[in-house]
Design a protein around this nucleic acid. Structure first.
Lengths: 256, 256
DNA sequence: AACATTCTTTGAGTTGGGTCAATTCAGCTA
DNA sequence: TAGCTGAATTGACCCAACTCAAAGAATGTT
């Protein structure tokens, strides 16, 4: 449930100061557009308790949202009734754009920890986009980026080992932290092991085991929800190199 | 390579007649907008040979495309250098929208068979969208649908058995055929087994085996690239029911 | 028609990661 | 500070799907 709902005089630009880099206002600021027009369309700016829903799957689509502090996960219910985590959103990132199509949210969104989230009614944004060409273009870009992000997830889930999936998640989180000028090597995971496992298409037990493995290889150091990447380059290499077919090679060598 | 490039007087509305239902023009026609404005922005309408690229990954983004006849696959190259098939596009469907973000196509697109494809320079579309509110909204919807589609693929790749993935693909293709008022029970697969396997995150051999299994269950009939769905409802049930944990049950019963 | 090439199927054997079960740990509340 | 509850870890075992290998179809080429 929402905790507070304080209407700030200029929520979007204040978002920039709070989270270092708001996806929404930065490009517009660069483009030199009038931000006051945008302020008017921002509905509210609320606190969400950990575990509370921002919107539910199939609820009528009204707004998209920007994380100002905290973290959010989006997930989808399958026909069989089990949940699939689709993404994690950190401060400065926008979510809720997949509901535009048929007027209902395709996924639900939930705060992973106490979070400040600002809501932007899409209809207003749409209308304003007609008058501000940069805003229209920016929205197209945001949605395109979301397509790309979902495609990358499909890619990750396709033919990658458990180790690669975890490493990939860590590196993605790392670079997203870097964009906000936070440490790319040391950060905390706002989501549970269960969420990580679900997101990466693994079992919780596997996540746990992989974390230990990476730790024993001195690639990362994990302590509860705190991660430290000890050797980012080695981690990146792990995603590029094809997993060596060591066993087949040995088999070949064993032949007379 | 492109084979011909004949500029038709009204490519968009002719697309409707050709493919039964063009995603692009239908909602606009409903909205009563002036289609002639749209005709002007459509660049060309070309034939592509089987296997020829419509655009390559990382090439500068200029246009989005609509399939008029034939079929297209989009795919992405991983850092390791292997291909991941991201989607199949049938007549009336638009592709190439994931390049808006950073000015380069995020995936490449290739004709699966001899295909007629019409190209729409995005910049023109964007500009026109400012003047035609319905077009702007329609583009947002299209992109939102694309996000949704990619999310569903992630979902499919996450925790589904090989059988479920194949069934899901068949049912999706079926309903897409139905939208074009073609038979939902009997259609041909424009893509190879390899493409199917890659798209579904499986090995080719597994696809082949699953196809046989479904056939022996009298759920489908497959002959080369022709599929017949013998019992759509049974297929749908297979996706809803949780895979019965028969073995555990037996184990429990065996206990003294 | 014979050949070459690619696509598809079938068989045999292996394994990465899942499931189940049992602890251990961490965060709360009282 | 003990006690409770859900989260995380660890171990043992197993299976769905992968890999490797080879045969069989289909398709194109000369």
């Amino acid at each position: 449930m929402k905790l507070t709902s304080n209407r700030s005089p200029n929520p979007l630009s204040s978002s920039c100061e709070q989270c270092g880099l708001s996806n929404l206002c930065l490009p517009l600021a660069i483009a030199g557009e009038d931000l006051s027009r945008l302020d008017a369309v921002v509905k509210r700016d609320s606190m969400y308790a950990r575990g509370s829903k921002v919107f539910a799957q199939n609820a009528p689509f009204t707004s998209c949202f920007v994380v100002k502090s905290g973290a959010v996960k989006t997930s989808m219910m399958s026909e069989r009734g089990d949940e699939k985590v689709l993404g994690f959103y950190l401060p400065g990132e926008m979510f809720g754009l997949d509901g535009v199509n048929d007027g209902a949210y395709a996924c639900s969104a939930e705060a992973l920890e106490r979070s400040a989230i600002c809501e932007i009614p899409f209809e207003h944004l749409e209308q304003l986009a007609r008058e501000l060409p940069h805003l229209q273009r920016y929205l197209f870009r945001l949605m395109s980026r979301e397509i790309h992000g979902a495609e990358e997830l499909s890619m990750l889930l396709s033919k990658n080992t458990a180790d690669e999936r975890i490493v990939s998640l860590f590196l993605t989180l790392s670079s997203r932290h870097a964009r906000r000028r936070l440490s790319p090597t040391r950060f905390s995971l706002p989501m549970s092991r269960g969420d990580i496992a679900n997101f990466l298409g693994l079992a919780v037990e596997t996540v746990s085991r992989v974390l230990n493995r990476l730790q024993s290889q001195h690639l990362v150091k994990v302590n509860g929800r705190t991660v430290e990447l000890l050797d980012i380059e080695a981690l990146q290499r792990q995603l590029q190199q094809p997993a060596e077919p060591c066993i087949s090679a040995i088999k070949l060598m064993d032949r007379p």
